[in-house]
Amino acid sequence: MDFMKKNIKTLNLQEKLSIGKKAATLRIENLSVYYDQQLAVNKVTLDANPNEILALVGPSGCGKSSILASINRMNMMIDDCRVTGRILINSENVLTDQYSLTKLRQKVGMVFQSPNPFPMSVKDNICFPLKDHGLKSKKDREVRMFDVLQQTGLWDEVKDRLNQSALKLSGGQQQRLCIARALALKPQLLLLDEPCSALDPKATEKIEILLQELKSTVTIVMVTHNLAQAKRIAERVAVCWSFNGSGRIVECSQTDIVFNRPASKITEEYFSGVAG
């Protein structure tokens, strides 16, 4: 009896942390973002499909990061920030107050521009968020930690220093640890805000390979300044451009189309270095 009870409990928990759920579909409809009445993102509509990497490219200040931060409602923390429109994850609008923030943040992982592992051991960086989310069994947490460290290719590099401070890892390792930390909550969608801009080419390559592998389990939306990177790893590319201070998407399509036969004059000039 006890055994069964335990099983039911584990099942609920697995449900809670959405084990086995597939990569999400993302649809952004008419998204506008205002910072203190200043329109930063103007009626953006965008899709991301399961098992693909969508790259958001464009010059600084065109609203790429604002779009990204709207998806997991991070920019709602900023004073005077207002977001309108709809963001549908698996057809559910996440921009309503009814949609729980905890559920959203668990379903949507985020990786930041500069690696931000917590000031604790490598192990705790993964296990502490799991514990905080209610994964009570130490063994379950450690199994999950092993999985995500394997997945991110970190296991062999850090298995002997799991109890050392994560801040002692190299920049690239720290960033992969942050990806692992996000993956530990079993997200269906992963947002990356220029994840390689603080890294050297070698570390960047490792992350790019990792993202290629991850797209089979999670939908990836990534902001990048690096056009070559978008070309290398993205299935589709969305070009963001600022019109009088408000960002808009000028085109969004398959990577080779955007790079080789862009529909918009702006894209063509931006890619050839004339504009931007």
Binding site: L101, G109, F112, D132, C178
Partner: peptide, 11 residues
Amino acid sequence: KWLSGAQALSI
């Protein structure tokens, strides 16, 4: 960055 990291994980 630690605080936003924690927020993004809904800690």
